[in-house]
Design a protein around this nucleic acid. Structure first.
Lengths: 216, 216
DNA sequence: ATGATTTACTTAACGGTGTTAAGTTACTAT
DNA sequence: ATAGTAACTTAACACCGTTAAGTAAATCAT
């Protein structure tokens, strides 16, 4: 028994090593420039070995995808102590953009690249209630709950919490993705990250005005 | 003279034909699945011929990029007749998302793909005042001008027009890019395009509340 | 203990990609 | 007529993701 569990462990170790190496290369050079052959070379195995542990390239990046959400939740965790739900909402949007700027390639993988979504489509038909998606659901649920609390306090009168959560996410994602995919430099002379920061502050300002709003 | 002008014309015709074929294939199958060899095969030339007309693959897609902005401006054109600047702003955001949904692949090229930005980086150092970028500038200027008119009318008190324009663009881009890159289906049971539409309406609602806002 | 089977991995190959160096043809100018 | 140029092609390089077939060692069954 102990000998077969050792083998089991070694298999898992190799799988983890492939994943970690993929992550390193991906962080260094991005998705396009990371090849199965590169990964194989760095871990000193033949490229085909990787296919014994992962279905295909998308499958590897789908696994990294999950790690991204774990990290994002770490950025969110301290914010659960912010008592005022509206302050918490603004803190979430700030933490989100900080995460995006500090982990550009990972953000790209999680929210821009098609690849991990393709992997999801291939063998998972359930989508939402898949255990790999748990961390993603947790992150989004935190946002939805915060907005529900805002509404319970009388903010955002007449708005649907889930739609507003998606909309808020869209707004900050818009800033982050334009920054990551280099669309900021083209329209403004400002430093790119400054522009992103100022846009994010403005989103908070707009949310502020919107949540305080009382029809006249 | 007339014989050499004919040759000149034929060269331009072939260049246009390459571009049009690239566009067709790109619209049908997306960026990744469109290869130089595919294009060459369809126009019945050898793949290397394409390199006599375009520097590389990015260069081809950068050219299509420009056409995308021409089309976007066509969506915007009728809106210049909307007299009320705030109504015009909301109409712009609606037209933008309609453009994105009706021309998904083109939108992807213009605002998501890295490729055309790489082409821009390669041989253009001026960036903003490059003639190829004229149509893009026109589209953004239309948004900035509209917001400036809003501010002149007393809306969005205390906000910077350019930053607000960028922020507004970010907000609608966020919705469009999440939809195009398949991140909607994961978080909601709603039909993807419905979700995008509702998010866009909510952005207009938020802008509405924000522009009506008077500090209490 | 020995033969059969399974496990873990590799070699070699397929069909594709973007790109370039060298070669070919046909037209043009002297 | 000949040298030169313009337009295009052939062949190749160095990659890519992926798979079929093969190998060597460990394990299992008799």
């Amino acid at each position: 028994m102990t000998i077969s569990t050792r083998k089991e462990r070694q298999k898992e170790e190799l799988k983890a090593k492939i994943l970690q190496t993929a992550k390193e290369l991906f962080m260094e050079h991005g998705y396009e420039a990371t090849s199965i052959r590169n990964i194989a070379e760095r871990i000193e195995y033949s490229p085909t070995t990787i296919y014994l542990y992962f279905k295909d390239k998308d499958d590897i990046f789908y696994a990294l995808h999950r790690e991204g959400f774990v990290l994002l939740n770490q950025y969110f965790r301290p914010l659960s102590h912010v008592a005022n739900p509206f302050e918490r909402l603004k803190a979430i949007s700030k933490a989100y953009i900080t995460f995006a700027i500090e982990n550009g390639e990972l953000y790209d993988l999680m929210f821009i690249l098609q690849s991990p979504m393709d992997a999801l489509k291939k063998d998972k038909s359930d989508k939402k209630d898949d255990p790999d998606w748990e961390e993603g659901n947790r992150a989004f649920a935190f946002l939805v709950n915060t907005i529900e609390e805002c509404i319970a306090m009388g903010s955002f009168k007449g708005m649907n919490a889930e739609i507003l959560a998606f909309t808020t996410w869209s707004m900050v994602h818009g800033v982050c993705s334009l920054e990551i995919r280099n669309r900021c430099s083209v329209i403004s002379e400002l430093n790119q990250k400054d522009l992103a920061q100022r846009a994010c502050e403005m989103i908070n300002e707009i949310l502020d005005r919107s949540h305080n709003y009382t029809p006249s």
